[in-house]
Design a protein around this nucleic acid. Sequence first.
RNA 1: GCCCUCGUAGCUCAGCGGAUAGAGCAUUGGCCUCCGAAGCCAUGUGCCCGGGUUCGAGUCCCGGCGGGGGCACCA
Length: 572
Amino acid sequence: MVDTKTALEIRLQSAFDAVEPGADPVLRPSDHADFQANGALALAKRLGRHPRELAEQIVGAASLDDLCEKIEVSGPGFINLTLLGSFVAAQLSTLAADSRLGVGAARTENVVVDYSGPNVAKEMHVGHLRTTVIGDALARMYRFAGHTVIARNHIGDWGTPFGMLIEHLLDLGEEQAIATFSMGDLNTFYKEARVKFDDDDAFKARSRSRVVALQGGDSETLRLWRVLVDESISYFGEVYAKIDVTLVPGDVVGESHYNEMLEGVINDLATAGLLVESEGAQCVFPPGFQNREGEPLPLIVRKRDDGFGYAATDLAALRERVSVLHGDELLYVVGAPQAQHLEMVFAVARLAGWLPDGVRCEQVIFGNVLGPDHKMLKSRSGETVKLVDLLDEAIERAYVILEERGSQLDGEARLHLATQVALAAIKYADLSSERQHDYVFDLERMVAFEGDTGPYLQYAHARVSSIFRRLGEPWQARDVHFELAEGASRALALGLLGLPPALSSSLSSLQPHRLCTYLFDLAQRFTSFYDACPVLSAEGALREERLALCDLTARTLRLGLDLLGIDAPDQM
RNA sequence: GCCCUCGUAGCUCAGCGGAUAGAGCAUUGGCCUCCGAAGCCAUGUGCCCGGGUUCGAGUCCCGGCGGGGGCACCA
């Protein structure tokens, strides 16, 4: 189906085209009508004409009689559009019969989404929250939109720290070490290794020669390394299950995967004439980047000591994503501190011809998670906060609140529900603010069930669901004829028709918060409707209409929340 | 020093060059013999400062001030 906004846009476009081909109607939802087209103002300026007069001309050229009840030029030259009730009704009927709720399936592209990226033998901490939650939401939205998503979990599984980690593994004994890992206590393991490395010269020496053995391909060393990697991946899997993220072990393609390709990256850069030796390192100097002294800034692909830097790995990965995975779109859900590094990697890839112009390649930047003091979130003792601890605390709080609210569920069911609520709280708080901004992590506010929170949306959904539970019999949309006589039901109907543009704008801007804003607005429209329009006590056609609106609301909330990675329980 | 980014209501945040800048929390006051009051309805307050572009600037440009990040071999 053609969604409502698009239907209007198409008609307006041809009216605008009649005056000036290609002119953008700038159609927006309006406070003064259902929609408003602002395009006449900008166009009038460009053509040097009176805006109101131009707007009148456009309205005259538009054929909107079957869609709009009222079209008027207002103010300096806005075109205000009020939809015809019969059109809204017809759209709603189509929507009711559409399992995709009006969202068209896009042309299929391969979208590589790089997110989460924890380090082997290191705890997943709050620093991994945003990349994991945002990346997963984007992956879900892209999949629903019809694209093929290739998730990439670019874990840190290679590099100099592995010398000390393997030596520590040997000191502990493999079984003991594995036990520590399976308890999910990666912090202790890493810290113990670190302390020995810093304080014990003999250990440090062993670690260094272990790195050499690892890089040299010593089989026993590789086996021990594999133990660390496998144990870590299985631990990450537990965390992902806990946070309900779609990443699977098969998405893990760590840094080590690219080891064999690094030499080739260097050679090809050299052949392309891009490689420059500087201070003993092999570098590329992409134009436009400067260091502290105002000199050209290198992307160091091979270090002075002959080791490869992470730039080499990132270049190899990018190349593989384009040439082997055939990615049409490469997304890097990585924090802001990496912005310059990634820009340089992208620039070098373009110089080398590895990144064709047709491929969209973008860092999905996000801001920091701050504590109540507005500084980077840390625990009381100043340590980084473990991700699982964060989740557990949220679950605990959600459980207590459910108890206070007199939840209808108890025991196992309540614990499960508390988990769903806690995840909704954390994910929604993370996704609903503009991605690039820092946000203050305040569990109390997030888990609160009032206001613009995940739990509020779940509650709205639970309320709709309870109507159908009370109904007793399975409900099916028959040929419902929508009258939408009350303001509240009309407002809800318009909200229900708004999913497709909300989702598409969320995707094209890579901003999940636009979908969040839409869902919150829809939930509010629903609760206002719920308050004003009794459903079960209504009769006849009116009852059918209201049930149909409820059904659509439930389906829309479920779908929207699902795209954000949030569950929508039927009962709370 | 250079580059990037952010600065909107008491607090946490929306705002895609357009009309009177919106929500949530908090405040105050109304709503449950009626589908879940975790709700609904009402209530006051605000764009860091100074220039500029524009018919129109929270939004774009320049310059300040303030916070955060980055700026050669850890990734």
